[in-house]
Computed example of a mutant assay.
Amino acid sequence: MVATLQLLIFLVFMLAIFGLSVWALVDLLRRPASAFPAAGKRTKTFWGVIVGVATAIAFCSIPPPIGIAISPFFLSLLSAVAAIVYLVDVRPAVEPYTRRRPPSSGSSRGGW
């Protein structure tokens, strides 16, 4: 009973780390490469490698009912750290340099 509960908690924890890493990777891929140097951060390629490897490690850390669990636990914690550093430090710095389209509502003036 206790072992099953421990496995379930570990599974939820690893899925949360994987979800966090995927969120960081998707956000990174949506940002333009020119925004990173403009914000004073490392290049998009650098962060892409860091977050991509972190996502792969997080995927490989999911336990057997869903995943394969071939990487050690401490590596999954390092992948969580990489994703958190991107989301907390790099993402807010790059955000102002990301072009957003203006909302396309019917209330815009001008045009036809």
Results as ranks from 00 to 15, higher is better:
A33W: 03
F74N: 13
A58V: 01
V2T: 14
I62Q: 05
S61K: 06
S34N: 14
L20I: 00
S79F: 06
A33S: 09
L75C: 09
R100Y: 11
A69F: 09
A69C: 04
V22R: 10
P72A: 14
A38Q: 08
P72G: 11
I9N: 13
L5Q: 15
A54S: 10
R101G: 04
R99F: 06
V53E: 07
F73H: 14
S61V: 05
E95I: 11
A35F: 04
L11R: 11
I17H: 02
P72V: 08
W47N: 08
A83W: 03
A35D: 04
G19D: 03
I50D: 01
M14I: 05
F74D: 11
L87Q: 05
P63V: 10
V51Q: 07
V81F: 14
R100S: 13
R31F: 06
I62S: 06
F36S: 03
S61P: 05
G111V: 06
A56V: 08
G40R: 08
W47F: 08
V81C: 12
F13C: 06
S108I: 14
V49F: 11
A33Q: 04
L29E: 11
R30I: 07
S61W: 02
I70L: 02
W47V: 07
A33M: 00
A54R: 01
S105V: 10
T98K: 07
W112M: 10
V88E: 07
D27E: 12
L7D: 08
R101H: 10
V2R: 15
A58T: 00
P65R: 14
S108Y: 00
L29H: 03
P32R: 14
F73Y: 15
V26P: 00
V53L: 15
A24I: 09
M1Y: 14
W23I: 07
W112P: 12
E95L: 14
V51M: 02
L20N: 01
F46W: 15
S76L: 04
L7V: 08
W47P: 09
L5R: 15
C60V: 04
E95N: 13
F18H: 14
P96G: 09
T98F: 04
V51I: 13
Y86G: 00
A93F: 02
S71F: 12
I68L: 13
C60H: 09
A24L: 00
A35W: 05
G106M: 12
T98W: 03
K41M: 14
R91T: 09
G111L: 04
A54H: 06
L25H: 11
A80L: 05
T43W: 08
V49C: 02
P65N: 09
I66Y: 07
P103G: 10
I66N: 01
M1L: 15
L28W: 04
Y86L: 01
P102M: 13
L11W: 06
V94R: 02
Y86A: 03
V90W: 07
K41S: 11
G106A: 15
R101I: 10
P103H: 15
G110Q: 02
Y86K: 10
I17L: 10
M14F: 00
A54N: 01
V88G: 07
D89N: 13
S105H: 10
A58C: 02
S76P: 01
L29Y: 01
T45S: 13
